[in-house]
Simulated assay, not measured.
Amino acid sequence: MTPDAGERLVDGYSLVVFDLDGVIYLIDRPIPGAVEAVGRLHAEGRAVAYATNNAARRSSEVADLLTGMGVPATPEEVLTSAAASAELLAERLPAGAAVLVVGAEALRAEVSAVGLRPVASADESPAAVVQGYGPQVGWADLAEASLAVRAGAVWVATNTDRTLPSGRGPLPGNGSLVAVLRTALDRGPDVVVGKPEPALFATAARRAGEGRALVVGDRLDTDIEGARRAGLDSLLVLTGISDASELLAAPPERRPTFVSADLAGLFDPAAVVRVPGTPEGGGWSATVTDGGGLALTGAGRLLDALATLCAVAWAADADPVVRPDSSEATEALVALGLSD
């Protein structure tokens, strides 16, 4: 079932908030169709924003990166966990306070920009530790952070993404590095700023004024959960981390409003589906098997098959192992990555 038969999804919203990695680009390459989709939004005069947990680039750097890919963007349209973390620390600490930065140079720059003093050693008695992803972060950095937190520094994590997408597959993200300190300290961060916390999306949504905002993301555990916490509708695109199997197993707080293969779902009613569907819909029928898995039969649109499976899996808390009971179902499950 599409949002409303014949209507474009984007027409129901005054602002579209995009995640970046896995939605607009993978590392530094645009995802096919993303440049065209954002260009179309601009051509129609629609407001856009970008909310990213990536703390390795400043807002201006992200805007430059997007512009270089053919997606014109301004720093004001970009909301990063690095900038949000620095702003939070500036609200809590006196001007000039020392902050131990574990992460990329962009995070240090954001800390400096709000009037705080970045340091690299626990010996400088930092009032806080801010931890974000950086490809050069190593044991020595984590050791200094551990010492500082044990000495009483506030521990702020820009985000806790376990992985980040790449063209070669998921790679360790900041959450994996946070987990190292969590193990060493036997506790978690005092504050996590990025998604799934709602702050980034709530800030973006305020720009929509009286209108509605739609969040577009590729991760159930950050983008979609963050949108739900912020009270916003969400579109899951299957171009990044989360896949159909993860969607079927998603707990209530991580279930999107809509699903599409890519950003074409914003404009083409046939390329998006509302989830969950119904146990019988769009030519498909799904049931729970005796073994606690799912069975799919029928024929129809691929996304309708996924919506039908979501309806049964979510209602029954079923195992996301699906058995095909028709040749068309076999083909659909292969296309969705749900075949054995």
Rank of each mutant, 00 (worst) to 15 (best):
L15H: 03
G291S: 12
S234T: 07
D28M: 08
A157W: 04
E44S: 06
A295W: 13
L214T: 08
G281S: 08
V334Q: 08
V17L: 10
S81W: 07
I27C: 13
A98R: 14
A157D: 04
R92Q: 09
D141G: 14
L200M: 11
L266Q: 03
S285T: 15
A43G: 04
A204M: 02
V78C: 05
E144Y: 10
D64H: 08
D11Y: 02
V149R: 08
A73K: 03
D123L: 08
V102C: 00
P269S: 03
G169H: 09
R108H: 12
A335T: 15
D340R: 12
A270L: 12
E246L: 14
A307L: 11
A286K: 05
L232E: 10
E280Y: 02
P324V: 04
L181E: 02
L306K: 01
S327H: 14
G231C: 00
L200S: 02
V130Y: 11
D186A: 15
R58C: 13
N174D: 06
A84F: 11
W314N: 14
G134W: 07
A208S: 15
G167T: 15
T278Y: 09
L116V: 12
Y13V: 00
R212E: 15
L247H: 11
A86G: 02
V193R: 00
D19C: 10
M69T: 06
V38Q: 04
D4R: 14
V178F: 03
G152I: 06
D190R: 07
G167H: 09
A140R: 15
V192K: 00
N174A: 13
